[in-house]
Simulated assay, not measured.
Amino acid sequence: MPTVLRWNGYRIFFYSADGDEPPHVHVVRGDCEAKIWLSDCAVAINLGFAPRDLGTIVRKIRERRPALLEAWNDYFADRC
């Protein structure tokens, strides 16, 4: 599971088996996890993050979206 960003205690990554899905990242911190679609930075799944934290996460994902999409495409290019 490649980690693509660490920031403020958050780890942003994708699972190696996720290549069949549209581009997205998983975000974990403590016991909480969220899945964010990179197409529109929408929250697909939220397991425990408070709304305020989720807003912060989405803003960071939106800010770093080009680099995250590049990492996704680079990683999964050889796996299709």
Rank of each mutant, 00 (worst) to 15 (best):
G48P: 03
A42Q: 08
E70P: 06
A44Y: 01
P66R: 09
E70I: 04
P66V: 10
F49S: 05
C41G: 10
V58S: 01
C41K: 03
R52T: 15
N46L: 00
P51M: 05
P66L: 11
A50S: 13
L54N: 02
V43K: 00
E70H: 15
I45H: 08
D53M: 09
K60R: 11
R62V: 02
N46Y: 01
E63F: 10
L47K: 07
R59H: 09
I61M: 12
L47T: 04
D53Y: 04
E70V: 11
A42Y: 04
N46P: 00
A50L: 13
L54F: 00
R64T: 12
C41N: 07
A67K: 13
N46V: 01
K60G: 07
T56Q: 07
A67D: 15
V58G: 01
C41Q: 01
L69H: 09
G48S: 05
D53E: 13
R59Y: 05
K60A: 10
R64C: 09
I57Q: 00
F49A: 09
R64A: 09
I57D: 01
L68D: 05
L69T: 07
R62G: 10
R59I: 05
I57M: 03
D53N: 07
A71L: 10
L68E: 05
I61D: 03
F49H: 05
E70T: 14
R59T: 15
A44H: 08
I57L: 05
A50G: 08
L54H: 03
I45N: 11
L47D: 12
L54M: 13
R59E: 14
I57P: 01
G55Q: 06
V58Q: 06
R59C: 08
I61H: 02
V58N: 00
I57T: 01
A67Y: 15
I57W: 01
G48V: 04
I61F: 06
E63S: 15
K60D: 10
A42G: 12
V43R: 03
A42R: 09
R59W: 06
P66F: 05
V43Q: 02
C41I: 04
R59V: 14
